[in-house]
Design a protein around this nucleic acid. Sequence first.
DNA 1: TCAATATCATTTGCATGCAAACGTTCATGC
DNA 2: GCATGAACGTTTGCATGCAAATGATATTGA
Lengths: 146, 146
Amino acid sequence: MVTVPVKTENLDYALEDQVGFMLRVASQRHANIFQSNIVGNLTPTQFSTIIRLAEVGKVSQNHLGRLTAMDVATIKGVVDRLKAKGLILSEPDLVDKRRSVISLSSQGESLVSDLKRAGRQISAETLAPLNAKEQKTLLGLLRKIL
Amino acid sequence: MVTVPVKTENLDYALEDQVGFMLRVASQRHANIFQSNIVGNLTPTQFSTIIRLAEVGKVSQNHLGRLTAMDVATIKGVVDRLKAKGLILSEPDLVDKRRSVISLSSQGESLVSDLKRAGRQISAETLAPLNAKEQKTLLGLLRKIL
DNA sequence: TCAATATCATTTGCATGCAAACGTTCATGC
DNA sequence: GCATGAACGTTTGCATGCAAATGATATTGA
């Protein structure tokens, strides 16, 4: 009988079973589904920004970033592009001179219900491989690791 | 008694409950954990590339991209940066002149077990809010929507 | 054989996504 | 009142991530 030394750290590491890898791949599939269902040529972050603005009305740019889980640099780029598309407005805050107040334009407002409809379809399609119970379970578990 | 028309598409759309939004936020948290645990200043895609190369040895660049769920343009950038760091090698394929054959350098090889150890830690920390059963459930459900 | 097709790698353009540094403005506490 | 620190928005730099176009090379099927 002999004992064989084994480097345990080299065994059992399957990249495709790691949560980070799976999150990346799942995000890719979702992005595909998003792109083929979305209206108005919006990206996922642009979509989230419009939806949030529809909920909260006027809000400062950085606060809008926090409400949509975006860095200050990221939300700035998103806001710039949505402004260029005419979907949102930005005005200086007269009380706090540091702030820009962001809001939906009427053109942005008119997109909201179509966007919500598309959003529902996108979520449904992404979760289509799961039955109703599994869908709830997945969302519940994902919520715990945010 | 009157009936009231309701635009159903405007009700019940909670951004934070959509699978795409949750995937994005979960990926952000994972990226944070990754960054504070990884060795050698690698990014997640660079990490995946090294791990896969350690598994498969020599492989063409595009095939390596498929093995790591990366677009041809994305894997090219990752390969370029890993080459610049001296962790991988690329040589022309003598049989198929279209191909570049990618492999780990000895410096890259020597990183692998530390990377796997870090990878295990990163996955564990990401999943730490869940108990063992929940972790298995989440990974199983994620696998179904890839 | 050889034309149609597919694959490989590259490049460009656009859009996240984050860190870090910066100047401006505001709020707090002494 | 006023210094300290916090928050706001901007900019730069780096790294994904994908679509689309391009040129070179292989494969195939008639």
